[in-house]
Design a protein around this nucleic acid. Structure first.
Ligand SMILES: [Mn+2]
Ligand SMILES: [Mn+2]
Ligand SMILES: [Zn+2]
Ligand SMILES: [Zn+2]
Lengths: 133, 133
DNA sequence: ATTACATTTGTAATGATTACAATTTTATTT
DNA sequence: AAATAAAATTGTAATCATTACAAATGTAAT
């Protein structure tokens, strides 16, 4: 399913800018920052504004086509993969990698029937292969 | 174990300000922001600076006596309870409550022997008892 | 008492995010 | 097709949490 399909399916009008951002998120699973997305798209869309990236990602998040990740103290991170998975951030190089863990599936919130759970995010922190001494 | 014991045990010199912050964290498990801690302590320590709160929490986090929580987009949150537990944030009222889940204990990172894991944080999001319609 | 070192404080700088009004684009009506 | 209305984009300014830094204060060692 391509960018256009996803936007249409979520009742998001597929403008040039929105399609470009969606396309980017579907081809870059590096959990990019707003700046990274802007820097990458800006050359091909010279009039692009960073505000549009903020607006677009905010809209995408509301509609559930991207995931907001609060794993990075400094910048917001976004994920085009909305399926259930965890994340790992390397304290040294800052890389954020996906963790597809079968046990992850078992994390259900028992003992708290009073809470309505919409979302779960699990963030691991440590050192990646390249950065562990 | 009181505030002084904890600081001494972690090789943190127990200044008046540090003791006050530690004491606060041991009596308020509301996952407070820097501002909340500052506002609460400021009256009794009139010369207190907000920078000291930042410095102190940063030091405490390095020494592992408090936990940094990235569950809130706006402000950093801190937790005086460093034992293994998850957190839930209500989208409406912003309350952050502890989740002590037995299954939580099972979350071990398999299938990624190349990663050195230092920490895991699980953040649930949704609506609390008061806020669900 | 003097000196060195650690901590605290106040202020200024940083920088990501948001607010907002003007402009441009797209859709609807005449 | 022109006019009008609505939606989206853009640029700039404001916000505000956090950090940087140097001066002041407090504490320990000589
Ligand atoms: Mn991911
Ligand atoms: Mn907690
Ligand atoms: Zn790394
Ligand atoms: Zn609530």
């Amino acid at each position: 399913m391509d960018a256009l399909d996803i936007l249409v399916k979520h009742d998001i009008k597929p403008s040039l800018q929105r399609l470009a951002v969606m396309e980017y998120m579907l081809t870059h699973f590096t959990h990019p920052t707003v700046d990274e997305i802007y820097s990458s798209l800006s050359p091909s869309i010279p009039t692009l504004s960073k505000t549009t990236i903020y607006n677009t990602l905010s809209l995408f998040e509301e509609q559930g086509v991207v995931l907001y990740l609060g794993i990075d103290k400094k910048n917001a991170r976004f994920d085009g993969n909305t399926s259930h998975h965890a994340h790992f951030r390397c304290k040294n190089c800052g890389a954020i990698v996906d963790i597809f863990n079968q046990k992850q599936e078992e994390i259900v919130l028992e003992g708290h029937p009073e809470l309505v759970i919409d979302d779960v995010q699990t963030y691991y922190t440590g050192y990646c292969k390249n950065c562990k001494k």
